[in-house]
């Protein structure tokens, strides 16, 4: 996401008001940088026009990688590299290999997906996020609009936010 310098920040008290405000702001052709909230708001993706996350698809591919890797490794180790007779049974048979294969599938699917989530959302211990209004982790809903990315004037957007229910509208400048 391109980072601008001058933002207008609308502060809201209620999730439903934010959703209505997003709709009216976007309908008038203003681009929203991002909306910040203390909790997940259901349906906000549709209002902001975000596509569904593809993380589940990524997780599926990590998972089948795990399945393939586990089965290949077990067959190779017990069937080819060092075959052993255990209880007079075949060197390789599928059923006893399923538990480890299943666990390894889950292991890769879960950790692969979480790591991907950290990378795409840029979550890391030394991250320095842009703070538009720190109250968004407590009880306020924050809508940030990049003035540089919009044609409309500051005053127009300011009025639009107040009219659609923002309790405060502040300006935030980053160096």
């Amino acid at each position: 996401m391109a980072v601008g310098k001058n933002y207008l920040v609308g502060v809201f008290e209620d999730p439903d008001v934010v959703l209505d405000s997003i709709k009216s702001v976007r309908d008038s052709g203003v681009k929203i940088h991002e909306v910040f909230s203390p909790h997940a708001i259901h349906g906000i993706d549709d209002y902001l026009g975000y596509k569904q996350s593809r993380l589940p698809i990524a997780s599926f591919f990590y998972g089948i990688t795990g399945t393939a890797l586990a089965l290949f490794t077990i067959y190779w180790m017990l069937g080819f590299d060092w075959p052993m007779i255990i209880g007079g049974k075949d060197f390789v048979s599928l059923p006893p290999f399923i538990p480890v294969t299943f666990e390894f599938t889950v292991l890769l699917a879960a950790h692969g997906m979480v790591l991907t989530f950290f990378i795409v959302s840029d979550l890391k211990p030394w991250a320095k996020p842009l703070v538009f209004d720190a109250r968004c982790t407590d009880d306020k809903y924050i809508m940030a609009i990049d003035l540089g990315a919009n044609q409309k004037s500051k005053e127009e957007i300011n009025k639009m936010l107040s009219d659609s229910g923002a309790s405060e509208v502040n300006e935030k400048n980053f160096k």
């Binding site: 991002e34 909306v35 910040f36 909230s37 203390p38 909790h39 997940a40 708001i41 906000i44 993706d45 902001l48 975000y50 569904q52 996350s53 993380l55 589940p56 997780s59 889950v106 699917a109 879960a110 997906m113 979480v114 989530f117 950290f118 795409v120 959302s121 840029d122 979550l123 890391k124 211990p125 991250a127 320095k128 996020p129 842009l130 703070v131 538009f132 968004c136 982790t137």
Partner: peptide, 24 residues
């Protein structure tokens, strides 16, 4: 880790929670 609660991040967070629950 720099979490601010952006809508995009929440959307990913929800998918991750759901899939982790399905795996767990």
């Amino acid at each position: 880790m720099g979490w601010m609660g952006g809508a995009k991040d929440w959307s990913r967070y929800e998918s991750v929670s759901l899939i982790l629950a399905g795996l767990a």
